[in-house]
């Protein structure tokens, strides 16, 4: 019997900002099994960094919480789920708008979701107020 996906990894860590580099480097290391280009790896690292930073700043508002990452490798793509059990997003459409930020005082640019959307091939956000948020992103990595 053939699995739907070829490999999977799960990661859980505290919502501390010094884990941002750890998270993106770990996901990139796992994704490298698909033999992506340097550009594709850079795209994945940037998107993961944005999603993890959102969990730290917005979901947990700099308090301690757990961030979960699940990565699934398919023959031609990687799917990355990044989730938290933080406060949730009130208005997802508004949050996704370029330059929108709920925290301008922190010098946030409001570009997080825009970058995730344009650097990945698919992005989906699910959120329930008070329960948490899950961002699912897909990057297609086709062999030449």
């Amino acid at each position: 019997m053939k699995n739907l996906y070829e490999n999977e990894m799960r990661l859980e860590f505290l919502s501390k900002s010094n884990n941002e580099a750890f998270a993106r480097i770990t996901v990139a290391a796992f994704a490298s099994q698909l033999d992506p280009t340097i550009e594709q790896l850079a795209d994945i690292k940037t998107a993961v960094s944005e999603a993890v930073t959102n969990c730290i700043i917005h979901a947990y508002e700099e308090k301690e919480g757990i961030i979960k990452i699940v990565c699934k490798l398919f023959a031609d793509s990687i799917v990355i789920e990044i989730s938290d059990t933080g406060r949730g997003i009130e208005n997802i459409e508004e949050a996704k708008k370029p330059l929108y930020t709920s925290k301008p005082n922190l010098e946030r640019s409001g570009m997080g979701f825009t970058i995730m959307e344009s650097f990945m091939d698919e992005m989906n956000v699910e959120s329930v107020l008070g329960l948490g948020t899950k961002v699912t992103m897909k990057k297609i990595i086709t062999k030449e």
Binding site: R24, A42, K45, T46, S49, E50, T53, L106, E107, R108, S109, M111, G112, I115
Partner: peptide
């Protein structure tokens, strides 16, 4: 490496 934090 730089993400959107760099823009702000």
């Amino acid at each position: 490496f730089m993400d959107s934090a760099g823009i702000g």
